Amino acid sequence: MAYKTWFAGETNNASGAFVRQGNHFTAPFGAGEGELPIEAGRYRLIWSAACPWATRQMIVRSLLGLEKVLSVGLVDPIRPAKEYSDWAFSLDPGAVDPVLKVKYLSDLYLASDPNYQGRFTVPAIVDIPSGTVVNNDYFNLSYYWETVWQDFHKPDAPDLFPEKLRQDIQELNSIIFHDVNNGVYKAGFARGQAAYEAAYHRVFKRLDWLDGRLSTQRYLFGDSITDSDIRLWVSLARFDAAYYNAFRVNRNRLTDFPHLWAYARDLYQIPAFGENTHFDHIKAHYHVCCDPGNVFGIVPKGPDAAAWKIAHGREKLAIHPA
């Protein structure tokens, strides 16, 4: 298996900096012309428990109570031995998705666009009747679940994207994406020392800033969880288990940041976060599929996941304690 095949469709610029591919299927959900109709049971969310972008959709789905209207298909964290980057449904009986009846995510992408040239990415929203991918816009998907899918939210669903905070949330989400979510990839996939060091320093400068922000408030926008918390959390969950070693972002571990670490445990202990977090999938994918130096495919045993259940004490930061 050649390391370079896993990231076909993405490049490094002349300085060696990692450049992420764009999204191909970006039609929004809605009632307007050219928008995807909002219908219970019509779509299937394909996800990998290793992928932060896909896990984010699963957390939002659980928090909002969309389980009955949006089905899910889980792919194997270890990519199949193929000549191009792909995901396989090898965890299912017969190695076939039970609803879509395909073996590989690429089958769905190519059914949607036979000329598709990029990586076959998760999350992917598949229109079940046609068996085609209709949206893989990982950056905006959660906004749709939080807004235009509101009629299907459970009665006590949290408001993850409150209207009065939307601009602030979107601005912070952009910062989190560039400096943390994608920042660790820029470090891990850099092809030049200067590009790596620039990404490395940017990641830790932002983590220091976030640790300070969370020293006086329970969540990123106060007492309530928002879309921003979910976006930050999926990277924090992978930091010590994968990024610290595989992506060489090793100035500090998450556990070395007192406020970020307690905040991350606070979120993990909420079922929607903890139940959609599979450290075995995370470690297998990043160390076997993303680390070119791991020629024997060894998956680390640690860190001990029991540490995520240690009391966090964040309740005292709430203005109105639960």
Rank of each mutant, 00 (worst) to 15 (best):
R206C: 15
L70P: 02
G192R: 07
L108C: 10
R79L: 05
D223A: 14
I176A: 09
D137C: 06
I38V: 15
D227R: 04
L236S: 04
D256I: 10
G16R: 10
N23V: 14
R253C: 11
N250A: 14
A194R: 09
K301H: 07
Q117W: 00
G9I: 03
K283I: 07
A237H: 07
R191W: 02
L63N: 13
G192N: 08
F120Y: 13
A318F: 12
R314W: 08
D137S: 04
R251G: 11
Y200V: 02
L317G: 05
G22K: 12
L210Y: 00
N276A: 12
V299L: 02
Y263A: 11
D107W: 05
A111F: 07
F25S: 07
A157D: 04
K101N: 10
F120N: 12
K301T: 14
G222E: 11
V134M: 01
N13V: 09
R20D: 12
R42Q: 09
S235Y: 09
F221I: 12
L214A: 06
H281G: 03
L172V: 04
K316L: 07
D159M: 05
R213I: 08
D256S: 14
Y43K: 08
D208Q: 09
I176S: 02
Y84G: 15
T255M: 12
V249C: 15
K68P: 10
S15Q: 13
Y143V: 03
F120Q: 04
A81L: 04
K154A: 15
D280N: 10
R42E: 11
K4Y: 13
G222Y: 05
R44A: 14
S106Q: 05
F204G: 14
T26K: 15
V122W: 00
A242E: 03
L91F: 01
E35V: 01
W261T: 01
Q193F: 01
L141E: 00
Q167G: 11
G183D: 12
N276H: 10
D92R: 02
G212M: 09
L160K: 03
A272Y: 12
V184W: 09
S228H: 04
L172E: 09
